[in-house]
Nucleic acid binder design. Structure first.
Lengths: 182, 182
DNA sequence: GTCTATATAGGGATAGAC
DNA sequence: GTCTATCCCTATATAGAC
């Protein structure tokens, strides 16, 4: 099995149980590999498995969410494309955000710098699009940050209330909200 | 030491490390009691410690956040009082929300029903105030839910970015936002 | 009510055969 | 590259003295 194929199978385990709630037994079962086989792919053990999963997911996020913002379409179209990417990336809200899940406990000690960096890149990349339509940089940053707040909050609520329309409504309202009176 | 005094000392451990990231050794150290002494207070072990902590925090939330909404003041004053309570309860955003932290992994299996119930009570109690000023019940629920989304999202961002002004800004804007054009 | 000491299970991790 | 078998450690939990 390719390393990438293994990583893909580990993703849902870390996402559901968090770093410390995930055990090698779970990862073994999810991947179909014995524990020792996992150590062949990840000599540093659980920590490097989480590391690989985070890196893989970051690339997926870049592709699904950030790339659309860097295309040469109209700003409104870019934002709509981002929202489509968000809907896909978070499976309509059913997927918890890795950045939120991994910013707790020991995982936070291990990955904090990367998590913070990723979140800020997201905010800044979105802000660029707003600046493009003439919104003041400071205001653009605020709006962009606010959109991320809404998304993260919606993901928490969906996890608890189990109603994906909460997430879908937030996503649907995002583009207009971000550009309003611009 | 009284049971309540013990519970208070356990709170920050579960809040920072989550249910599965918290160990009895941590709880022992935080409380100043030996592991066996903790079992005197909580015969069911870690699960009942988390249970007691969740119940205690729920009472604090009720007092700080929900009670102000049930006073006989003007609606806008009630919302402002809630925001003051939120700021206190979440320590200006430095405290992660227990409902969010405990809705992950094994803890979610143990506590999901209570967590969902608590979140919905919060949303409904806030909605009552909006209905009081003539907002349609459906719209009141939406706005109320949206305010909780913003709070939860802000708590996630503060945890990662470590800037409490994010939370404070959200809180400051809440009352007006909830009542706008009502 | 708190302690020391201990039991038991499962966690992460490794050795070495195939 | 995957396995079986095993190691060591820590986690949860208990027994029983004080």
């Amino acid at each position: 099995m390719s390393k990438e194929a293994v990583i893909v199978k580990l993703i849902p385990v870390f996402r559901q149980y968090g770093y410390e709630g995930t055990t090698l037994s779970m990862l073994s079962q999810a991947s179909g590999l014995g524990k020792a086989s996992l150590y062949h792919h990840f000599p540093q053990g659980k920590e490097s498995m989480a590391d690989a999963v985070m890196a893989y997911v970051a690339v997926e996020f870049e592709r699904a969410v950030l790339q659309p913002l860097k295309s040469d379409r109209q700003p409104i179209e870019k934002l709509k494309a981002m929202c489509q990417g968000l809907n896909e990336f978070y499976a309509a809200g059913e997927n918890s955000c890795f950045l939120a899940i991994m910013s707790v406990g020991e995982a936070d000690n291990l990955f904090h710098a990367r998590i913070k960096q990723q979140l800020q890149t997201w905010i800044e990349t979105t802000a660029e699009v707003l600046i493009e339509v003439g919104i003041e940089p400071a205001e653009a940053k605020m709006r962009s940050q606010h959109s991320v707040i809404e998304i993260q909050g919606a993901l928490v609520l969906v996890r608890i209330i189990k109603d994906t329309t909460i997430f879908e409504n937030i996503i649907a309202s995002l583009p207009q909200k971000m550009l309003q009176q611009a």
